[in-house]
Write a protein that binds this DNA or RNA. Structure first.
Length: 438
RNA sequence: GCCCUCAUCGUCUAGCGGCUAGGACGGGACCCUCUCAAGGUCUAAACAGGAGUUCGAUUCUCCUUGAGGGCGCCA
């Protein structure tokens, strides 16, 4: 069995979207599973729609997702160049061969390929036997002299010795054009594997670049964890067949195979992606989570140049990591750690003042603070429990008003952790201020 | 219009002739007397329809319906 060679062949004519990312991912998984070669080939033959910016986006997104290519731009390889805009001589050579075979003719200034009209049969690795008969001759070179997709795609797959063509099902009907060309060149057919499409989450049709949540770049900017997105994407059209969902990439590489890929289209579900992202965030090593979250907050210019002390930020992040669903929730969750200027949520205030005597409890807490032991959550818990016992109250009678005073809100991280991280000074100051003004 | 593909809870899926049709997201309920966007427990929810094949079909075949895709001098 010759070495597996697969390629991902995007065209830089628009933003890099989820569907493309999954196609790249499945190719990458198949290459890694088989110890094969993952080729990145840029299909930039449409000179009017190409853009360097989109090309950079493709590179960035693939790198962010961890889909490293073995051959391609910036990497080299024995079958380059890997940008079709630089392969004119290759196409010319193959074109001459086709012309010599008498299978081409010119019409309206464009060059057409004369099909055989024979039924084209492929053994698709995912769908099984698929037969289709191509009905019309088609253009392979535009009147401006540029070759078109069907032609260059096949020529490059031959020239780059691609063994498996793993692509979206939207190409299934085009395959008859491609096999006609392979045969005209006397080249063996690659193994085809047409993966199901990703459908937009609302409304009919496949997901496109314009749809909500379609752009990979968007998830990167929003602070999603690439491992989570990759894991989620693997589960769209493939599964490990047991009930596991979060599984390490190495395990997916070990299990992934073409016959295990589903045949039916999958609807994109951003809620489930968000959940996967949360699971990854909660299980993340706190040290890694800290740097990831810090980088995210910086990218959002959250600190506006006034960055807090690293040790303090580290504690804040560690305290909130298990409580937020995503790092993008952080800005709205941690503001009061860095500024005394937080608003008191009226609803939370109303709830706190609806029963008992919150001010009296806060007074008692304030009085106890100078002697309190802030070294651990446990000692602080003991402090609150001691006060509660002493004044025949519940711990909640201290906790709820104090949380409101310290953060202005009714929701937040573990209360004892909140006290510990804020520290005695801030806690005293804020409670005193609250008692004086509220 | 012609051609190709697909069809299990709302969604992602497991199931490859005999199962109380399993898991996850989302939904609902309850618990956690430290809140909650976190965590825990429980719960509702599916084999599109019709013919066959078979002792027996979610599972195999055909038809219908539905969904998706292709039919560019886009890729």
């Amino acid at each position: 069995m010759p070495q597996v060679r697969v390629r991902f062949a995007p065209s830089p004519t628009g933003f890099f979207h989820i569907g493309s990312a999954r196609t790249a991912l499945f190719n990458w998984l198949y290459a890694r599973h088989n110890g094969g070669v993952f080729i990145l080939r840029v299909e930039d033959t449409d000179q009017t729609r190409n853009s360097d910016e989109f090309l950079r986006l493709i590179y960035d997104s693939l790198r962010w997702l961890g889909l490293d290519w073995d051959e391609g731009p910036g990497k080299g390889g024995d079958f380059g160049p890997y940008r079709q805009s630089e392969r004119a001589s290759v196409y010319k050579e193959y074109l001459e061969r086709l012309k010599a075979s008498g299978r081409t003719y010119e019409k309206d200034g464009a060059l057409y390929f004369r099909i055989s009209g024979e039924p084209q049969v492929i053994e698709d690795a995912i769908r099984g036997r698929v037969e289709r008969t191509e009905e019309k001759d088609f253009v392979i070179v535009r009147s401006d002299g540029n070759p078109v997709f069907h032609f260059v795609n096949v020529v490059d797959d031959i020239a780059m010795k691609v063994t498996h063509v793993i692509r979206g099902e939207d190409h299934l009907s085009n395959t008859s054009k491609h096999t006609e060309l392979f045969k005209a060149f006397g080249a063996p057919l690659p193994t085809y594997a047409h993966i199901p499409l990703i459908l937009k989450q609302n409304g009919p049709g496949k997901m496109s670049k314009r749809d909500q949540g379609a752009l990979v770049e968007e998830y990167q900017k929003r602070g999603f964890l690439p491992e989570a997105l990759v894991n989620f994407l693997c589960l769209l059209g493939w599964s490990p067949k047991d009930d596991r969902e979060k599984l390490p990439l190495a395990e997916i590489v070990r299990l992934f195979d073409l016959p295990g890929v589903n045949q039916s289209n999958a609807r994109f579900d951003e809620k489930k992606l968000a959940h996967m992202n949360m699971v990854y965030l909660h299980e993340m090593d706190p040290g890694k989570c800290f740097s990831f979250a810090r980088d995210y907050l910086k990218s959002r210019n959250y600190f506006a140049g006034a960055e807090p002390e690293e040790a303090y930020l580290r504690e804040v992040i560690a305290l909130c990591q298990p409580k937020v669903r995503a790092v993008e929730d952080l800005p709205g969750f941690i503001g009061y750690f860095f500024s005394d200027e937080y608003a008191i949520d009226p609803k939370a205030r109303e709830k706190v003042f609806s029963k008992g005597d919150p001010k009296a409890r806060l007074g008692e807490l304030l009085a106890a603070l100078p002697q309190a032991d802030f070294s651990s959550d446990t000692t602080l818990e003991a402090l609150i429990q001691g006060l509660a016992a002493q004044h025949a109250a519940g711990t909640g009678d201290y906790i709820h008003p104090a949380r409101l005073a310290l953060s202005g809100t009714a929701v937040g991280p573990s209360f004892y952790g909140l006290l510990r991280v804020l520290g005695r000074e801030r806690v005293e100051r804020r409670i005193a201020r609250f008692l004086a003004t509220a």
